[in-house]
Computed example of a mutant assay.
Amino acid sequence: MLRLTTFLIFCLVFIGFEANAQLRLQYGNPSGKTATLGAKINFFIVADRSGSMSGEKMDKLNAALQDTWQKIAADPVLKQTAQVALIAFDDYATMERSPSTLTGNPQQPFLVATGGTNLTDALALVESAVTGNSQENVVIILSDGLPNDPSTALQAAQRLQSRAIVQAVAIGDAQGGGVDFSYMQNLVGQNNAAVLSGTKFKPLFSDIVDALRLHVNVLGGKILVPNYSFYIPNNNHWKK
């Protein structure tokens, strides 16, 4: 009887995880490495701060990033394992925060929207940061428009995918339109791109934090999920 009860509890937990996995994104672990319990994972946010992001978009993105920093810093798993980095791009790309844990330092740089959309240089900064390291690297690209040079950005994204999990969120209007989603799909792969509707950044990042927590636990062996792949849970509250 005790064994049957234990088995049923396991089934319910497993089904709960699967029910929350509606938007699956490719588990890009090209090196085949497995993290040990407590190992660090690099989490890169690549954020568009071009002129088209000015106003409410940038205000809401700054607020959501600060909220995300605080969530990770307060999480008993992620505060020790997630090394968070922020790269922002306009006419130029800058490493606003180098990969480091948020323990004791949950403040995030304040982004100001201006200029163009130099995604190529932003991805080159990420590539430079991940080259040669032995850690797991997760990269989330946020943008509301085409980059200055679409072809070189595409090439940079393809190179990066051999070293990291790379996915993109296209920032659309309130209906999820007004953005070149097909380019985003070409950039990171059809199943690795999604559309955010309007300025729902906080719900989006809340789901990303949940996905990171699960990813770290699976890599560390604390949670066993058959046929696991990295994904952002899709609760339909930020996606069109």
Rank of each mutant, 00 (worst) to 15 (best):
S182N: 15
D180E: 11
Y27S: 13
A47M: 09
C11S: 10
S128N: 13
L119Y: 01
G172E: 09
N62T: 10
K79L: 10
V188G: 09
A64N: 07
K239C: 13
V138S: 01
A194H: 03
L8Y: 12
I171A: 06
Q175C: 12
L86I: 15
A39F: 01
V169S: 01
V225A: 06
Y228V: 04
S128G: 13
Q167V: 00
S134Y: 02
V169K: 02
F10I: 12
V225D: 01
L214D: 06
R213T: 10
G38K: 05
A93F: 00
I141Y: 01
G189V: 06
L224C: 06
Y231S: 13
A35E: 11
P226I: 11
P109I: 01
A168C: 09
N235H: 15
N148I: 09
Q135R: 05
A35K: 06
G116R: 07
M1W: 12
P233L: 10
A63N: 08
G115R: 03
G172P: 07
P233N: 05
L224R: 06
P203H: 08
S98V: 07
P99D: 02
D144F: 07
G115I: 05
A193G: 07
L142V: 07
K40T: 12
T117G: 06
F201M: 04
E56V: 14
G145H: 02
N42D: 11
S197A: 15
L154H: 11
G176N: 07
A164T: 05
A39Q: 13
G176P: 08
T5R: 14
A85Q: 02
G145V: 03
D59G: 13
